[in-house]
Write a protein that binds this DNA or RNA. Sequence first.
DNA 1: TCCATAGTTCGATCTCAACCGAACCATGCA
DNA 2: TGCATGGTTCGGTTGAGATCGAACTATGGA
Lengths: 224, 224
Amino acid sequence: MKDGPDISRVAALIGDPGRANMLAALMSGKALTAGELAAEAGVSSQTASAHLQGLEAGKLIVRTKQGRHHYFKLASDDVAGVLEALMGLAAKTGQLRTRTGPRDAELRLARVCYNHLAGDMGVALFDGMMARGFLHVKADELALTAAGYKKMAALGIEVEGKSRAPLCRECLDWSERRSHLAGRLGRSILEHVYAQGWAKRVEGTRAVRFTGLGGAAFRKAFEF
Amino acid sequence: MKDGPDISRVAALIGDPGRANMLAALMSGKALTAGELAAEAGVSSQTASAHLQGLEAGKLIVRTKQGRHHYFKLASDDVAGVLEALMGLAAKTGQLRTRTGPRDAELRLARVCYNHLAGDMGVALFDGMMARGFLHVKADELALTAAGYKKMAALGIEVEGKSRAPLCRECLDWSERRSHLAGRLGRSILEHVYAQGWAKRVEGTRAVRFTGLGGAAFRKAFEF
DNA sequence: TCCATAGTTCGATCTCAACCGAACCATGCA
DNA sequence: TGCATGGTTCGGTTGAGATCGAACTATGGA
């Protein structure tokens, strides 16, 4: 009974530790070069090249050539979604790699998930926006309310855009097992957070470090 | 940078065609025996035995021994969720296995997804219940409204239960790319549909075939 | 007690893919 | 033009795991 699409091809691509590490690195949302991804996966550049070809052929990542560098990023938010789901399941089934150390705590507090904010802060933001009536769900579609549009305008956050990617999308958190805000709006808000200097990325990890004042200002601005 | 849980173990388990077929078969929600799963995957019983051990060790499935039969089912709704997500992505990236034939159309119309109703009918039910105000979403939690509880009581559908599994849950559809209703309520409703004789499973597939009167009665009962 | 059936274990085989050394192409810079 | 750097291609090696034949264990029934 071979109903439905062929799962195993995609899963097999993610199933190699090297490729999985590359994909996890790309979850940061940044486009990375072949060399960086090779280092990330801990393999030689030749091996990395082969893996990247495979991932590209499987449409999990896309390549942009720029000069003598090849930049790679995740092909779509759907791919990021599957990876998050897998992380959630892997965390739950106890295949944990995370030893709860200081850096780990920082990751649980706030980190980037693809291109938006995840962790405690991400979940709190989502819950707050729902409670304040800035977001609502109707027939499975997450959307900004009129009040939400007004709020974003007041904060100077871009919500228009020609891209047909969804403005609002939920994304399940592997540490919190709760939803946080993804989609174009999620990305815009994270960019706003950076622009205001409320927080910045911790070099070399996916953690986002808020300043004391920045965290307070963020909560105040979004009223949560 | 090895942030987060170890994805690749889980993905590798799903990445073998044989095991993927087994998991897909278990998406029907029924518990299947080792022999049935071997046939499903198209491998010998010895090979199947090895695969089933792996899946069990990886906590993707659970085993129940009953006499000389070993029954297997998916370990949790999370596993089903990951499989659905992978199906969605695989369908989108064009790794389609489905030739759109008559049986395929039937699958798109109505099928079981783990233990609840998916396909056109499943999505329509979900949308209808949201529109009628039987369901609402608050802070990422999908829940029955007072009106929803009343309606279920009127239809004689069990909604209480000691299980701590969520009563309501959304589940993304690979054919529709929309949400339908999962969770304990989703299961109860499907059982109600069977009990009323509105529809029954098509032997050997995941398709659910509604009778003409049954489909109408179903729509009438849930007002969509 | 004997047999049939369901499933597992063991052992051997074999294929596929991950890996890297070496050579090769392409771009940027001096 | 020459050189350094980033990436890819090719070839050969290796190891993990998928597979099945054969033997073994457990349950149910005659």
